[in-house]
């Protein structure tokens, strides 16, 4: 039973090194996919936002340095619905900021479901929890 569950106490023989090597591409391609998707989506949103802003109301340097980021999802949504470029840019920043978090979460899922590597599943869970703590609790 321990052997099937990868429980504690069995020898080093249960660590099939060849299986790990075979599974490695999965974790790599999942992480790469999440990063590429997040980055592409956020760049597109920012590009749309900048284009809209310049089309609707030519903005000047002073205004560019005096407008600040909205982090309330409802305010961002309202701005997008109103067709303001600004809302798209803020959403793009949001998507970008959460891309590394999504990358950690995706790696955790692959470590758990595909690799069945419980040690690294715990490691990634630890990183995820600590990142969220510093993101939401410490500020």
């Amino acid at each position: 039973m321990n052997r099937l569950n990868g429980g504690i106490g069995t020898g080093s023989s249960r660590d099939g090194a060849s299986i790990q090597v075979q599974n490695e591409p999965t974790i790599q391609s999942a992480a790469a996919w999440v990063l590429r998707t997040g980055v592409t989506l956020s760049a597109l949103l920012m590009l749309i936002g900048l284009t809209l802003s310049f089309m609707h109301h030519p903005i000047n340097v002073q205004r560019m340095q005096s407008i600040f980021f909205n982090y309330h999802p409802s305010a961002i949504l309202a701005s997008i619905v109103a067709g303001e470029g600004r809302g798209f840019i803020d959403l793009g920043i949001m998507v970008l900021a959460f891309t590394p978090v999504m990358r950690v979460a995706a790696s955790m899922v692959i470590f758990a479901i595909v690799d069945r590597d419980w040690f690294y599943t715990l490691v990634t869970l630890g990183v995820l929890v600590m990142t969220l703590i510093s993101l939401f609790l410490l500020s």
Binding site: L47, M64, I67, F68, F69, R86, D90, G92, I93
Partner: peptide
């Protein structure tokens, strides 16, 4: 702290 990030600076910088 919200008011520290400027969207119109961040967007071109990030792209």
């Amino acid at each position: 702290r919200g008011n520290l990030v400027m969207p119109y600076v961040v967007a071109p910088a990030a792209i």
